[in-house]
């Protein structure tokens, strides 16, 4: 099963290497990893999607906690949360079929962010399902290039995941 972990780490050089190295050498599968700094510039948040059974996920959490720079880790898979991915798609678009593509873009509430002589770049955000759907809707026109960000996620409600009251994994 896929788990979404949100991990607060110290914003120091080498942290990403430590985490990526840990996953590699212990044989855990990273589905996606997104990282950026939080409201506190000394702290970064990683959203890691990892595949594994409960035993594996438990070990992933414990091993991550052993890294000195990992401050806090929460498995939000079963919590109410919002998650988003972003995709940029460069798609073939002769002037004749642009209208059709623009309709699809409208339906998915995506945006056209660049226009070339025979192609368009489309930007969309949403959960994984929506992103997969727009990609397959555009595939028949001929996709030239795709860039996806990997998932970022945040728990719903007033409580902050940086707080001390949250239960650790």
């Amino acid at each position: 099963m896929k788990h979404t972990l949100t991990v607060l780490v110290e914003n120091k050089p080498g942290v990403l290497t430590r985490i990526a190295g840990l996953f590699a050498r212990r044989g855990y599968n990273i589905e996606s990893l997104a990282v950026g700094r939080t409201e506190n510039p000394a702290i970064s948040r990683m959203t890691i999607v990892v595949e594994g059974d409960d035993r594996v996920i438990e070990q992933v959490g414990k091993q991550l906690y052993k890294l000195i720079e990992v401050i806090k880790l929460t498995d939000i898979t079963n919590d109410e949360h919002v998650d988003r991915e972003m995709i940029l798609i460069k798609v073939n678009a002769d002037p004749a079929i642009r209208g059709e593509i623009m309709q699809i873009v409208e339906i998915f509430r995506a945006r056209i962010v660049d226009i070339g002589r025979n192609s368009l770049i489309i930007e969309a955000t949403g959960d994984e399902g929506k992103i997969n759907a727009i990609e397959s809707a555009l595939r028949p026109f001929g996709i030239k290039e795709v860039v996806r960000t990997g998932k970022i996620a945040m728990a719903r409600g007033a409580k902050s995941k940086n707080g001390r009251n949250q239960e650790a994994l």
């Binding site: 050089p13 080498g14 290497t17 430590r18 190295g21 840990l22 050498r25 000195i68």
Partner: peptide, 14 residues
Amino acid sequence: ITGITMPITKHNYL
């Protein structure tokens, strides 16, 4: 050496 010893130290520093 910090890269090399990451998996075999509790922590390391450059």
